[in-house]
């Protein structure tokens, strides 16, 4: 079933992307083409097959809980758009 313009708007909201009205039909059309294409996966029965998330199926390695890095806040914040007193600034979130 093709997705509607309303659904495209909902997905865009989830992805925090705004789509201009003039571009909406092109996104809707292309997303539908992509989804119709990936629907080819339905051609094969996969009942009971365990999904593969990681090619080597290795477990995550654990390390000792020891501090290995020095604090680099200043260096990391030097590339931030706006900071103040070591904090990242964003528009007010809580009234």
């Amino acid at each position: 079933m093709p997705i509607t313009e309303k659904e495209v708007r909902e997905i865009a909201q989830l992805a925090r992307i705004s789509i201009a009205d003039k571009d909406m039909s092109s996104y809707e059309d292309q997303l539908n083409k992509i989804l119709a294409f990936v629907d080819e996966m339905k051609a094969i029965e996969t009942e009971g097959i365990i999904p593969l998330a990681h090619p080597l199926e290795e477990t995550q390695k654990l390390r000792n809980d020891k501090v290995s890095e020095k604090n680099q806040r200043e260096s990391y914040q030097s590339v931030a758009p706006t900071t103040e007193n070591g904090l990242y600034l964003v528009p007010q979130v809580i009234e």
Binding site: I3, E7, V8, I11, A12, L14, A15, I17, Y27, L31, I34, L35, V38, M41, K42, I44, T46, I49, I50, P51, L52, A53
Partner: peptide, 23 residues
Amino acid sequence: LLTGTYVLSSGYYDAYYRKAQQI
């Protein structure tokens, strides 16, 4: 990003993401 958000969204995860991982 839109395609990825859609295939991971509630109600579509099994049909797309899980299916793709089985393949």
